[in-house]
Simulated assay, not measured.
Amino acid sequence: MSIKPSGTRGRRLDPDEQVAAAFTSGLLPKDISSIDCNPVRSKLARKSQLKYDNEYVLWKAYKRKFPGADPRNMQCMKHFAELVGRSTVGRLDEEGRATVKTVRNKVRVFMAQWERVNHLSIPRVVHDSMVPYIKDELSDKIPLSTEEKAPTFLTIQNYLEMEELLWQGDYHNYIHEGSRVDLSTLLKMHCYTSARLQEICQAKYKDLVCIVAWKDGEPEIKLSFKREKCKNKAESQKKPKHPIYERLDPAPPLLAHPLLFLLSIIISSNAFKNYRTVDDVLSARAPKGKYRIMEWAHDALDIPVFPEMSMDGPTEKAKNDASWGKQCSEWAKRAGFLDGMGLHAPRREELI
């Protein structure tokens, strides 16, 4: 309902009239006691919410043992931080000690969740004291491990060995042969873009824009990958985009070309509106000096680009990002990457 009363066309309301008009509809309460006084915090993503909830469970157990516990108290917060450090089992340390980084993260998440649940704030001095306390005092007192997971890098040789295994000698029992195409394409997406697991796995065709244009007098297909599932960008219209080009310089071998494998998935899914075969796609042309959008079929817009596979083929469910991360690491192990591989490793300039 507009607050602009009749007869005011061309004239702005003065502040008193604006206030009066806001109450005219009767929807704005005059008594502010009906409005809660809790601070408003940004909404957590589903996975983040699970993480925050899990960290709060330990506090509930601690609270049952110490009913008067309050993390706004410096002594209490230090005591609880020590409990976190002593009760967390580490994976990097041979003796199972938690790392400084892990304990810092757990304590940080707990404090944030406590403030969310209780609608109160932990004093800044307590909050800021936890990092040096954990790093400088608890690390010696417990002691905590200072180990950090060494970064892994996917070299060109590693990449070739993974692809060779996948297509020529992989003993893994894939639920459907289409899985091999998807796995190879997903790995290439991580090599050629900086997108996160969820952003790639959850992509639907409406998130992609495919065009045919011209480059140096030759037709070229380009695919723009808009990352709707992007961290901290849920409310922004400016999503990161990663164009993938047909003509790269220097040109990679076909086995490492991301667009070739993406097109095979797109064509097999009948995702194009007007192009059904490889010949149709390769024959597409734009007017000279311009480009043409290769439209998606209407019924393909909400289909995941990388679906979960069943014995009968692709399903309507998007590939689980955690599952893909584990599958890729296991694939790397079978190819001789002894410690597995996180999906930051493929972001290598040599492959681009």
Rank of each mutant, 00 (worst) to 15 (best):
S310D: 08
R97W: 08
E218T: 03
M130C: 07
S329M: 13
S283M: 07
S121E: 08
N274V: 11
L208Y: 15
R41A: 02
E115G: 02
E94D: 04
W331G: 06
V126Q: 06
A284K: 04
A284R: 03
M130Q: 07
M309P: 00
E316P: 01
Y245P: 03
W331R: 12
K273Q: 14
Y245M: 05
V181I: 14
I267E: 01
Q18F: 07
S264V: 08
L254A: 10
F225P: 00
C37I: 12
F337Y: 11
W59K: 04
I175N: 02
S33V: 06
P252S: 13
A300V: 05
L259E: 09
R247M: 12
R292G: 04
G217P: 02
E17F: 01
Y205P: 05
R180N: 05
S48C: 04
Y245H: 14
Y133R: 04
H127M: 08
V84W: 10
L208V: 10
M162Y: 09
G178D: 00
A22Q: 07
K288H: 06
G85D: 14
L282A: 03
Y159K: 08
A45E: 09
W331F: 13
A335I: 00
G10K: 09
K30N: 10
P250T: 02
D93N: 02
W114G: 07
L208I: 11
R86E: 12
I35S: 02
Y56C: 00
C37Y: 05
Q157E: 14
Q18I: 12
N54S: 00
R196C: 00
K273P: 06
F23E: 10
W114H: 10
N173I: 07
V181F: 10
K290V: 05
E228L: 11
A345G: 09
R9V: 13
A213P: 04
K231D: 02
I3W: 02
A69V: 01
S6I: 06
L166W: 10
L343W: 09
G68L: 06
P5Y: 11
L197V: 10
H190K: 05
I200T: 03
T185V: 11
N232R: 14
V19E: 15
T88W: 15
S283P: 05
Q198G: 07
A81W: 03
M74C: 01
E163L: 10
R247D: 11
L165E: 03
M294S: 05
E55Y: 00
K326D: 12
Q237S: 13
G325S: 15
N270G: 08
K60N: 06
L120K: 09
Q327G: 00
P219I: 09
V209E: 12
R348Y: 14
H298L: 14
R347A: 13
R9P: 01
T99F: 03
G7M: 12
F80Y: 14
V19K: 12
D312C: 02
Q198H: 04
M189F: 15
E308K: 15
A112I: 15
C210H: 03
L351A: 10
P123D: 06
G26Y: 04
M162V: 03
G7D: 11
M130G: 04
A286F: 07
E164Y: 09
V131D: 13
K317C: 07
Q49Y: 03
S34K: 07
H298T: 14
K43V: 06
V181T: 10
R46K: 10
F80S: 13
A61W: 06
H176C: 02
G26A: 02
Y56V: 01
K326S: 15
G85C: 13
M77A: 15
L262S: 08
